[in-house]
């Protein structure tokens, strides 16, 4: 009956958004008077997996078959479905991401389960099982009554404040049989930027638009990002022009982010870009045009030349340390 939570690993560490999912799942488990079980797939040390206990998990199932070393959503779905069956889980929590959506979808179809993605708050149990979810790329919310016997929820970043506690979790090895049909695709190659901070995980993002005037002028932005320990992003025109790589594109048709601090440099603030950043806690806009729409969506604004303002901010950050 336990609430089952899937966590994503990045180089053997549980991702921060996944720890939020653990805290969310543990909070739901408490309301149901049941325990919280975590499923982790891939390489990780026991000491790292035990971290899930500090966020409220009672048990961690660890699937570490060599066949699972690539993020194969279909095979991951088979593992998750097996875990749900073993634990008799009725509520399954996933951190919203491309991988989790893909595996959650396949599990929902396998089990005839409800799936609701983009959940922003703990469920309301006062009248059935209702959850609030983000729709229209953050422009609105919908309240959804979840009716399936098994309920799969994909939770958005910041849906809950994850507090590290002192709990511990037992770790069990989990090796369900893997259907051959999950492995019909061959991975030919992977291109992955190494050492880059992930945009969906980052607490701070510094992002640039056409106001940066060209890829050769990105250094002041990169310097500020480095000083802040921030990830870097960009607007759609910038990635369309190949000034920055496609995986940095933030917006309605790019990556949706929800950092604590989003600093927009030379981005006018088209509604499509704002849709991708409106879940940020604090937004700063720097633009030389005082009429830039971004100022209407921002908490702090500086009307000025990015090439003057950015180096001064970098200096101020370094001096304040």
């Amino acid at each position: 009956m336990s609430v089952l939570i899937f966590v994503e690993l990045d180089n053997g560490s549980i991702k921060k958004t996944s720890l939020e999912a653990v805290a969310y799942g543990a909070a739901v488990a408490q309301t149901q008077g049941t325990s919280a079980t975590v499923l982790a797939i891939g390489n990780a040390d026991s000491s790292e997996l035990a971290k899930a206990g500090a966020y409220g998990a009672n048990k961690v199932l660890h699937a570490n078959d060599a066949a699972l070393s690539n993020e194969n959503a279909m095979a991951y779905a088979s593992v998750l479905a097996a875990a749900i069956q073993q634990e008799g889980s009725k509520i399954v929590i996933l951190p919203k991401s491309g991988l989790s959506d893909a595996m959650g979808a396949r599990v929902a179809a396998k089990l005839g389960a409800s799936i609701v993605s983009g959940v922003t708050e703990l469920p309301d149990l006062s009248n059935g099982f209702q959850v609030k979810r983000s729709i229209y790329t953050g422009k609105a919310f919908a309240t959804v009554e979840v009716k399936g016997d098994i309920k799969i929820l994909g939770i958005k970043k910041n849906a809950i404040e994850a507090q590290e506690g002192s709990g511990t979790a037992t770790i069990e090895s989990f090796s369900p049989s893997l259907p051959e049909g999950d492995f019909t695709a061959k991975v030919i190659n992977q291109e992955k930027a190494s050492g880059e901070l992930s945009l969906t995980e980052a607490d701070i993002i510094v992002s640039g638009g056409r106001g940066m005037k060209g890829p050769e002028h990105w250094q002041p932005l990169l310097d500020l990002a480095e000083a802040l320990g921030a990830a870097t992003g960009c607007s759609k025109p910038v990635s369309d022009l190949d000034w920055r790589p496609h995986h940095e594109h933030i917006g309605q048709t790019g990556i949706k982010v929800a950092p604590n601090l989003y600093i927009a440099c030379g981005i006018s603030g088209a509604i499509q870009h704002l849709a991708g950043v409106n879940s940020s806690k604090v937004i700063v806009a720097i633009n030389k045009d005082p009429e830039a729409p971004f100022f209407k969506a921002a908490d702090y604004g500086i009307v000025g030349d990015v090439f003057d303002v950015l180096p001064r901010l970098t200096k101020a950050v370094k001096e304040s340390k």
Partner: peptide, 27 residues
């Protein structure tokens, strides 16, 4: 398996605090 019961809009954003460019460091 799931049905919509209501929609809502995010709380309106407060006013943007403007910082003069020559005092950018105060940000």
């Amino acid at each position: 398996l799931a049905s919509l019961t209501a929609y809502s809009l995010p709380a309106p954003k407060g006013a943007c605090k403007m910082i003069p460019a020559d005092q950018a460091e105060t940000l």
